[in-house]
């Protein structure tokens, strides 16, 4: 995927982009998991929203794979988010890999014009808190697409989940 993984957010999001003929930069956005810090008890669920911020062009489609520590968090499911989704479902069924702790192929699109720019949530990821411990949940694959099929330059932010009794 095109992008850079940074440590937890420490201030303003630095958007990456490349010059376009000396004019405006190419499409860029930051992708983070919301909330960035969360604490949950073993046996409970934790929901993390995939949050897009600073999208400089309409986000027509996206795909993400998100990974946590499978010894602490069991990947459970992914759901569309009302701030983005326009048909009540993700585009394809996400795949949950218990071995790697991944929720793979979280994909959705906006049908037609009016795809959002700026900041909005696109999906919700649900994990089951299995064992106490601390794990980082991060985006490990995918990206955002413009209406012309171009990829965004993305800056990625991970979240920290503490499972404590």
């Amino acid at each position: 995927m095109r992008g850079k993984t940074l440590a937890l957010a420490l201030g303003a999001l630095a958007l990456l982009g490349s010059p376009c003929g000396g004019g405006p930069a190419g499409p860029s956005a930051a992708v983070s998991l919301d909330p960035l810090f969360v604490t949950v008890q073993p046996g409970g669920f934790v929901d993390l929203a995939v949050l897009i911020t600073g999208a400089t062009q309409p986000v027509q489609a996206f795909e993400f794979t998100v990974e946590g520590d499978p010894g602490i968090l069991i990947p459970w499911q992914a759901l569309p988010h009302a701030q983005y989704d326009d048909d009540g479902k993700l585009f394809v069924a996400p795949q949950v890999d218990l071995g790697t702790g991944r929720i793979e192929r979280v994909v959705d699109l906006r049908h037609g014009a009016g795809a959002p720019t700026g900041s909005f949530r696109v999906a919700t990821l649900r994990f089951f808190a299995w064992e106490k411990g601390t794990t980082t949940v991060r985006v490990v694959g995918g990206g955002l697409a413009t209406a012309s099929g171009q990829p965004f330059d993305t800056t990625l932010f991970s979240a920290t989940v503490n499972v404590v009794p």
């Binding site: 489609a61 795909e63 699109l109 049908h111 037609g112 014009a113 990206g143 697409a145 012309s148 171009q150």
Partner: peptide
């Protein structure tokens, strides 16, 4: 493979979504 890059992925989905309707 709408953008002809040899893979049917979210970039094609972007094109598809933009053309929808």
């Amino acid at each position: 493979d709408l953008n002809g890059d040899g893979r049917i992925d979210f970039l094609d989905l972007g094109l598809f979504g933009a053309g929808f309707g």
